[in-house]
Design a protein around this nucleic acid. Structure first.
Lengths: 118, 118
DNA sequence: CTGTTCCCTTGACGGATGTCGAGGTATCGG
DNA sequence: CCGATACCTCGACATCCGTCAAGGGAACAG
């Protein structure tokens, strides 16, 4: 990979028009790709479904790590990826941090992909 | 990555229930992740939008390569990724191969992601 | 203050990935 | 048959990524 991917802010709302609506700009392509990359891992898909199943209260690193049979360090890494992509929100409560899914961001990302809806 | 990702068939229809509908199985997580991985690249996002813009007739490797300023070998690699994920269909016509987007597959993948719709 | 629990960061390792150049195969027009 | 065009495959290179072990900081109970 000669040209490394730049780092851009992803915490904001998913912005761009559907991919099917016209040729996307380089910037939009990069943004969508980075958000998708945050999701493109089997562990993170399971992680997301677990967090979604936990409801608005959210889920903790330890419990997710036990469920997935992974180290807390690895789960922390994955949670960081999803958070930085704006797909998860983190809320500290005592010594624990509760992660909840951002359903709006997820829906917006799906909308960018869907050629029929929207 | 200690455990390398297995290779599975992706040419069929996107099958599984939305990620928000419940905790996904390991198999479903893998399938969704592999399809998303096929899309999680800025070049492939642009590629997909170009192919979509070309309509049902499809687009050719050479023209896409010129548009993207990439080698035909690189574009062939990306087209292969998208095809193997079931997102593109290829039709030979003389010496050329026309690639068209599979809007149904794309919409189904979006549906798996969307927590609100479906 | 001490110990426990929870989480994050760092460093390291092996496997995966995007890009290209070179070379091979197929189709078609002379 | 020859050349041109379009596509693919292969090998190589640099970079990225998922995983873990080790260690440190923060909150809380005693």
């Amino acid at each position: 990979m000669p040209r490394s991917l730049p780092t851009i802010e992803l915490s904001g709302a998913v912005c761009c028009a559907p991919v099917a609506a016209g040729v996307v700009s380089d910037g939009d392509a990069l943004e969508v790709a980075l958000r998708l990359k945050a999701l493109a891992d089997p562990v993170r898909i399971k992680l997301l479904s677990l967090v979604l199943a936990a409801g608005s209260g959210g889920a903790r690193n330890v419990d997710l790590a036990r469920e997935l049979q992974l180290t807390d360090a690895t789960v922390s890494h994955h949670l960081g990826q999803l958070s930085r992509a704006g797909l998860l929100s983190a809320t500290r409560q005592g010594a624990s941090i509760y992660y909840a899914a951002d359903r709006l961001a997820l829906g917006a990302l799906a909308g960018v992909l869907d050629p029929n809806c929207c």
